[in-house]
Write a protein that binds this DNA or RNA. Structure first.
Lengths: 123, 123
DNA sequence: AGTCTATATTCGATTGATTGAATATAGTAT
DNA sequence: ATACTATATTCAATCAATCGAATATAGACT
């Protein structure tokens, strides 16, 4: 596979609304467990796991296992800059681009232990 | 269509080897006519036109008509920065990412008037 | 008018991405 | 062991993207 095919694969992974939301969330939060992403995005868990697998295969995120929980983060902090630059370019075209909201902690609907006790998410 | 769907559309337009090569070429050359892209990438003309239409609809390039010729350029100079940042991130993952070669002028195989007389391409 | 040249569009077949549903895995606790 | 919980995987149906072939448009020149 050549350079451009590899680049195209990564952009393909980015070309998905839910995956973009996940990345933006990770850029803002630093790290998040799957249960938080499920609660924050209000999607079914297998669906979120599917998208995380796509992002992992594209090399955009890494995972860290911690008992039953799995925490995800951006594989490179510059992925956050990259997304921001993308948004800036869209804004320059006159397209409305709002940034997602910060997560409240504890996250309502999140079942992980930390959220049950009102502490920082999954840390 | 929401913010993330719009962003995803743009990434979708980027998720294609030939389109990436076109953008990289435009980032380096500033402007190029269709015939140059056809000659430089060694693809059939309708195929290049299809890809340019996709890029235009995504807002990534603009066109300027000049007689029979149509010149394309990046709609925003930051699109070039954006692609470079994407490549840097890939390199940090240990992925080989070479940059495309500069175009020789006149372009062998290009039939446009300027190339026939050995001048700057299509300007 | 006709003709040539550069570029664009349409259509259809194939391929690839998406996503819901069901199921699997692997830690943890009893 | 058994049961529970968080996460991952598989499969199949649907939907969207790709690309070759053919054709269309539109400006320039006789």
């Amino acid at each position: 596979m050549n350079t451009y095919q590899q680049q195209a694969k990564v952009f393909q992974a980015l070309a998905h609304p839910t995956r973009l939301r996940i990345l933006e969330l990770l850029a803002r939060e630093g790290e998040a467990c799957v249960c938080h992403l499920v609660a924050a995005l209000n999607k079914r868990q297998p669906y979120i796991s599917q998208q995380l697998t796509t992002l992992r295969k594209a090399g955009l995120v890494t995972d860290r296992k911690d008992g039953l929980l799995v925490h995800y983060r951006l594989s490179d902090e510059r992925v956050g800059d990259f997304l921001r630059l993308g948004k800036d370019i869209l804004r320059a075209q006159g397209i409305e681009v709002q940034s997602g909201l910060a997560l409240t902690v504890p996250l309502p609907g999140c079942t992980c232990p930390r959220c049950q006790t009102g502490q920082e998410p999954c840390e």
